[in-house]
Amino acid sequence: TTVEVQGVEYRFDNPEEAEKFAKKMAKSLNLRVELHGNKWRVE
């Protein structure tokens, strides 16, 4: 599972970890998070 934060990609073996990371990043950067296939995008 991939998390893309403002163009930078982070890879996770565990989808739940990816989701937690994406939501945490979105909250700290005041952005929103969307799931596209198996990629979380924070923008």
Rank of each mutant, 00 (worst) to 15 (best):
T1W: 15
T1V: 10
T1I: 12
T1Y: 15
T1M: 13
T1P: 12
T1N: 10
T1E: 05
T1L: 10
T2E: 07
T2S: 10
T2L: 14
T2W: 15
T2F: 14
V3A: 03
V3W: 01
E4Y: 13
E4G: 04
E4H: 09
E4D: 11
E4Q: 10
E4A: 09
E4V: 14
V5R: 01
V5L: 09
V5G: 01
V5N: 02
V5M: 06
V5I: 10
V5A: 04
Q6V: 10
Q6G: 08
Q6S: 08
Q6L: 15
Q6M: 13
Q6W: 10
G7V: 02
G7E: 04
G7Y: 03
G7P: 00
V8F: 08
V8D: 04
V8H: 09
V8W: 06
V8I: 13
V8C: 13
V8E: 06
V8Y: 08
E9N: 07
E9A: 07
E9Y: 06
E9C: 15
E9T: 13
E9M: 11
E9V: 13
E9Q: 08
E9R: 06
Y10G: 00
Y10N: 02
Y10F: 11
Y10V: 04
Y10E: 01
R11Y: 14
R11L: 13
R11Q: 13
R11W: 14
R11K: 14
F12R: 00
F12E: 00
F12Q: 00
F12C: 08
F12Y: 04
F12A: 00
F12P: 00
F12L: 02
F12V: 01
F12S: 00
F12M: 02
F12G: 00
D13Q: 10
D13S: 10
N14V: 09
N14W: 07
N14C: 14
N14P: 01
N14S: 12
P15G: 08
P15W: 08
P15M: 08
P15K: 07
P15E: 09
P15C: 08
P15S: 09
P15Y: 07
P15Q: 06
E16Y: 12
E16I: 11
E16G: 10
E16M: 11
E16S: 11
E16C: 10
E17P: 02
E17L: 09
E17T: 09
E17F: 05
E17K: 07
E17I: 08
E17N: 06
A18F: 01
A18V: 01
A18E: 00
A18M: 00
A18R: 00
E19L: 09
E19K: 06
E19F: 09
E19Y: 10
E19T: 04
E19G: 04
K20L: 13
K20N: 10
K20I: 12
K20Y: 10
K20T: 12
F21K: 00
F21H: 02
F21R: 00
F21N: 01
F21Q: 01
F21A: 02
A22H: 00
A22W: 02
A22P: 00
A22F: 01
A22T: 01
A22S: 02
K23L: 11
K23N: 09
K23M: 10
K23T: 07
K23F: 12
K23I: 13
K23W: 11
K24C: 15
K24I: 12
K24G: 11
K24H: 15
M25K: 05
M25T: 09
M25S: 05
M25Y: 04
M25D: 01
M25E: 05
M25H: 03
M25Q: 06
M25F: 04
A26S: 04
A26D: 01
A26L: 02
A26V: 02
A26R: 01
K27Q: 15
K27V: 15
K27S: 15
K27E: 15
K27W: 12
K27N: 14
K27P: 01
K27Y: 13
K27I: 14
S28C: 15
S28Q: 15
S28N: 12
S28D: 15
S28F: 13
S28K: 15
S28G: 08
L29Q: 05
L29F: 04
L29W: 03
L29E: 04
L29R: 04
L29K: 04
L29S: 03
L29A: 04
N30Q: 07
N30M: 05
N30D: 08
N30I: 03
L31F: 07
L31G: 15
L31S: 08
L31K: 05
L31R: 05
L31A: 14
L31E: 03
L31Q: 05
L31V: 07
R32N: 11
R32M: 12
R32S: 12
R32K: 13
R32E: 08
V33E: 05
V33R: 02
V33C: 15
V33G: 03
V33S: 06
V33F: 13
V33T: 06
V33D: 02
V33K: 02
E34V: 13
E34R: 10
E34C: 12
E34W: 13
E34A: 10
L35T: 04
L35D: 03
L35S: 05
H36K: 10
H36E: 11
H36Q: 11
H36Y: 11
H36R: 12
H36V: 15
H36W: 10
H36C: 14
H36G: 04
G37F: 05
G37I: 04
G37D: 10
N38F: 06
N38I: 05
N38V: 05
N38D: 11
N38S: 09
K39P: 01
K39R: 13
K39N: 09
K39E: 06
K39W: 04
K39D: 05
W40I: 05
W40M: 03
W40Y: 07
W40N: 02
W40G: 02
W40D: 02
W40E: 02
R41P: 02
R41K: 13
R41A: 07
R41F: 14
R41C: 15
R41N: 06
V42H: 02
V42N: 02
V42P: 03
V42C: 11
V42D: 04
E43A: 11
E43P: 05
E43W: 14
E43C: 14
E43T: 13
E43I: 13
E43H: 11
E43L: 12
E43M: 13
